[in-house]
Amino acid sequence: MLHGQKIVVVMPAYHAEKTLAECHAAIPLDIVDEVLLVDDASDDATVAVAQRLGIRTHRHAVNRGYGGNQKTCYALALGADADIVVMLHPDYQYEPRLITAMAAMIASGVYDVVFGSRILGNTAIAGGMPRYKYLFNRLLTAFENLLIGSKLSEFHSGYRAFSRKVLETLPLASNSDDFVFDNQMLVQAHAFGARIGEMSCPTKYFADASEINFRRSVVYGLGVLRVAMTYRLWKWRLLKSQLFSAAPADRLTAMKPDAP
């Protein structure tokens, strides 16, 4: 806990058997109250490794996609009475030891959303990010900042922390089940007035780390452009969109985690 607030780490997992143990070992369990893993119908030993490590695990019977996995992660975290939720990929690309700092930025009451930026600190290329992905990141981020009116260093990091209020308020149920979920969530946080903070986060690209291919990257990029344009039209009141709905039906419903 930090400042009396329960901290839950959620791990959206798919084929993470080779990296999960090392990633989990780096989590600061002195302040993290619970770790929840959602396996997206992996056909490897991810679930077995998680159970051996004592991680509370939920398994999808069928693959629901990266966004669908996160929806379950956040619903379970809400059901576990989390006050602060940190989403950490189990492929060990992001540095788990930064969880303490990220959670503290929310526990202090200064921010509602915090993400680890690969761009701040200029570590992305040094960490092995493919140059075409770095270029796409910079171009897409510049476009989104222009349309959305923000000044974030990037919109595409998968390392994030949220207050409970944010997860209960955003219309996450209306988001995609694919990779663009991450982008939709951050734009929604901006649209709903959440206070967004960033911190520099080194990342590692290696053989066992999860990575989408060039074709999926292009699909993701087109989705990002669509989200930004949808936001701008919604902001101008020229378009109604469920992505920015305040209706309770578009929010996640808390789920009780499976028994350990």
Rank of each mutant, 00 (worst) to 15 (best):
L2C: 03
H3F: 13
G4W: 02
G4A: 11
V9W: 02
V9H: 03
V10L: 08
P12L: 14
P12K: 13
Y14P: 09
A16I: 03
A16D: 14
T19H: 01
H24I: 01
H24R: 03
A26I: 02
I27K: 01
P28R: 06
P28M: 13
L29Y: 05
D30S: 14
D30T: 11
I31F: 11
I31K: 14
D39S: 08
D40M: 02
D40G: 02
D40Y: 02
A41S: 15
A41D: 12
S42N: 04
D43L: 05
D44E: 09
A48T: 15
A48R: 12
V49M: 03
A50W: 00
I55Q: 00
R56A: 10
H58T: 15
R59E: 07
V62R: 14
N63R: 15
T72F: 01
L78K: 00
A80L: 06
L88W: 05
H89S: 11
P90A: 12
D91Y: 08
Y92L: 15
Y94I: 10
Y94N: 15
Y94R: 14
P96M: 06
R97N: 10
L98C: 07
M102A: 13
A103Q: 14
M105T: 01
S108M: 08
S108V: 07
G109N: 06
G109H: 09
V110R: 09
Y111K: 12
Y111T: 05
V113F: 02
V114C: 03
F115K: 08
F115R: 04
G116I: 11
G116P: 02
G121P: 10
N122K: 10
T123Y: 06
A126T: 15
G127Q: 07
R131P: 01
Y132S: 02
K133E: 14
K133W: 08
Y134R: 06
L147F: 11
L147I: 15
G149T: 10
G149K: 10
G149C: 11
L152G: 04
S153W: 10
E154C: 03
E154I: 13
H156Q: 12
Y159N: 10
R160V: 09
R160I: 06
A161S: 08
P171Q: 09
L172K: 06
S174G: 04
D178P: 00
F179M: 07
M185I: 01
L186M: 13
H190S: 05
G193P: 07
G193H: 12
E198M: 06
M199E: 00
M199D: 00
S200V: 00
T203I: 14
T203R: 03
D208L: 00
R215S: 12
R216I: 06
R216Q: 13
G221E: 09
G221W: 05
L222W: 08
G223H: 11
G223S: 05
G223R: 11
R226S: 11
V227F: 04
A228E: 05
R232M: 03
R232Q: 11
W236R: 15
L239H: 12
S241D: 14
Q242M: 12
Q242A: 15
F244C: 01
S245E: 07
S245Y: 07
S245I: 12
A249Y: 04
A249R: 15
D250I: 05
R251Y: 08
T253A: 13
A254G: 10
K256Y: 01
P257Q: 09
P257L: 06
D258A: 14
P260E: 07
